[in-house]
Simulated scan of single mutants.
Amino acid sequence: MMLTGVIPPVCTPMTPDYQVDTASLTRLVDHLLEGGVDALFVLGSSSEVAYLADPQRRIVLDTVVGHVAGQVPVLAGVIDMTTPRVLEHARVAEAAGVSALVATAPFYTRTHPTEISTHFRTLAAESGLPVYAYDLPVSVHTKLSADLLLELAADGVLAGVKDSSGDDGGLRQVILGRQAPFSVLTGSEVTVDCALWMGADGVVPGLGNVDPHGYVNLVKSARQGDWEAARAEQERLVRLFEIVRVGGGRMGGSSSGLGAFKAALHLRGVIAHPTTALPQVPLNGDEIAAIGKHLATAGLL
């Protein structure tokens, strides 16, 4: 399953009492499909997967898979601390009808590359679905090495990787070293043009929730070899990405970033409320107004 193009990690809209807002979620899915995205990734970092209880995860899966109805592939994050917990999420996701699974290395526990290899091999063997690795050392505290990724790719264990490591050298090593079909997807919203130029296959941008058309246009320009247009679109999106910093030092990075995506979607009329899961700190009125100014400058309001 060779994925390419724009694959947004879908935000999880919530009601003011912290339940999954399924009506807003289906509007968000329509917003993304109308933007021309190539696939959807639910239950990732931008989906607030770490904050969702298992029943909420299932609601997200059933809502998105049911509403998409096969129009594009739906990837499901099965992110958890250890292999047994990930396998349980995988069984639920497979029953919901997803197209592929996305998993990080184990975390909280201290792991060795041999154990990480066993983790992915077990998931691939028991799930029956394509498995994508999610390289997220800032949260998992383990960097997936290029050697390990290429070994697992060559053995048919992994179908691809979402690289959110920020290690451009490592990303290039994977691109240059792959032999079999293996999707290399950047998770950086602000260096997509560079990753595509190096040979990456696509992008998984949290900001793509807010402006899917922008990322689709960027990828289209790159595919056509119009790197000047790709760079110009990337620079517009870099300026828009400043919304994630409006929370400043008043809150954590997740509160500021995920709150910004949701506030922007609310201002654009896509979701009903910008609620983020506990214990994240909500943005205040001044911060949301600042996001509105960024959206207006980007031509989105």
Rank of each mutant, 00 (worst) to 15 (best):
S46C: 11
L101I: 08
S127I: 11
A124E: 02
A133G: 07
G97T: 05
R110C: 08
G166C: 13
V138H: 12
D30A: 08
L40F: 04
R85P: 09
P181K: 06
A95M: 07
D38C: 05
K143N: 13
G35V: 02
G128P: 02
A96Q: 13
V192S: 00
L3N: 08
T275R: 14
G292I: 00
A153K: 07
H31D: 09
L196N: 07
T83H: 04
V246R: 02
S145F: 05
S221A: 15
G35Y: 02
T82C: 12
L87N: 07
V60L: 04
R245Y: 11
N284G: 12
A39L: 04
S255G: 15
D38R: 02
E34R: 10
L25G: 10
A76Y: 00
T22F: 03
A159V: 08
I116E: 02
A96G: 12
V74Q: 08
V246I: 07
L144W: 09
M251R: 09
P205V: 07
R245W: 11
A154W: 10
D286C: 04
E189W: 06
A105R: 00
V29G: 06
G247T: 02
S127T: 12
M2E: 15
S164L: 01
H31R: 09
I7P: 00
L176F: 14
V244A: 12
S24Y: 02
A290V: 03
M2S: 15
T12C: 13
T114P: 01
S165L: 01
L40E: 03
S256Y: 08
A277V: 01
K162F: 06
S46D: 05
D201C: 09
G225W: 10
V49F: 13
